[in-house]
């Protein structure tokens, strides 16, 4: 008895000692009666359900906590005003000329930041400069915020009516063509993403948290005070803060490719597509695919595809993955409501 006990490993020890064979043994059980599944009990194409909690932070203009499995992200959006007189090389936006540039991008009106060093996982030490992963994540989120054109610059402009009384007609279209109305300031949105706990798939959950927080964001009514030359905000009791208008609902979906061969493979080996990988799976997979889709207009619209680290996923798998991403979109939309 004693010998068999010392030779038998508990599954937790097996996972620690040799994680790759452990995951492989789970996906490819030697006993055919055991169903194939991942170490976390999920099917290869099964994602963890989202849960969303809005308006958790009292001092932010909008916030959300999004949890997917053991990955929990809190995102807060805070608006601050930026006077156009303080922008170097400022050019007033023209209604007819859209091609002149993107105000959101040119004046850096969206400032996302990702914080991983919160003790959310053992491999991120607190009190060190941002890791490569944190920097990569914030760049990807930044470029997705811009390339998806999720927000419009119109929402962030603070107008001043030259002739009329201040603070009127700023959500209405009227007066746009007239020359008296001018942009005096912009709202800059500071979008801070904090990982509360980290168990794989950071990009999807961080993006989901940003979307949920932006949908929750209500900016107070701001106007230009001519006498004091300041931007002032009305009290929420005086005038209801207005939400941002958003274009569609982009949702990210990530999968990792697990290959049976641990070392560099030659020829084709067996592989599994693991949707929504956890931390163990991420550490064992080289190739990842991320797709951001938007199904709001019926047809699946793709906003980002990012695939790197391997040669398994070709065009056929990519088409298949678009359907997986579409189901993930439906899951997130129902979690938001």
């Amino acid at each position: 008895m004693a010998t068999s006990n010392s030779l038998t490993l508990s599954s937790a020890t097996f996972a620690k000692l040799s994680p790759h064979p452990f995951l492989l043994a789970n996906l490819q059980p030697s006993d055919p009666s055991t169903p194939s599944s991942r170490t976390n009990g999920r099917q290869p194409r099964q994602a963890r359900p989202y849960s969303v909690n809005n308006s958790s932070l009292s001092h932010a203009h909008g916030s959300a906590v999004v949890r997917s499995g053991d990955t929990t992200v809190i995102c807060g959006v805070r608006g601050e005003t930026l006077l156009t007189s303080q922008i170097p090389n400022y050019r007033a936006p023209q209604a007819d000329n859209i091609a002149i540039g993107d105000e959101l991008r040119d004046y850096d009106l969206l400032v996302p930041n990702v914080e991983l060093a919160t003790g959310c996982a053992p491999n991120f030490l607190p009190g060190v400069p941002p890791t490569t992963l944190a920097q990569t994540l914030s760049t990807r989120l930044f470029s997705l915020l811009h390339s998806s054109k999720f927000l419009t610059a119109e929402d962030l402009r603070i107008y001043h009516d030259g002739a009329g009384t201040q603070g009127e007609g700023d959500t209405e279209e009227e007066g746009f063509g007239e020359t008296t109305r001018e942009v005096k300031a912009y709202w800059v949105l500071y979008i801070d993403v904090l990982f509360v706990s980290f168990d794989g798939n950071p990009f999807d959950v961080a993006w989901a948290a940003i979307i949920a927080a932006l949908r929750d964001t209500k900016l107070p009514h701001a106007y230009w005070d001519v006498d004091r030359e300041l931007v002032l905000c009305k009290r929420p009791t005086e005038k209801e803060p207005r939400p941002l208008s958003m274009r569609g609902l982009p949702v990210a979906c990530t999968a990792a490719v697990f290959t049976a061969r641990e070392r560099q493979k030659k020829g084709s080996g067996q592989y599994w597509i693991l949707v929504d990988p956890d931390r163990l799976e991420e550490s064992l997979c080289n190739e990842t695919v991320t797709m951001v889709v938007d199904n709001t207009e019926g047809e699946t619209k793709v906003l980002t595809i990012s695939k790197s680290g391997g040669t398994v996923v070709g065009p056929a798998l990519m088409r298949e993955f678009a359907n997986v991403a579409a189901t993930r979109w439906n899951e997130f939309r129902s979690a938001l409501q």
Partner: peptide, 20 residues
């Protein structure tokens, strides 16, 4: 050089057919 897709990065707005 074995004609396998190793990296694909896309941004903007497109359909799967356009990507193809």
């Amino acid at each position: 050089s074995h004609d396998e897709l190793i990296l694909a990065e896309s941004e903007g707005s497109f359909t799967v057919k356009e990507w193809d």
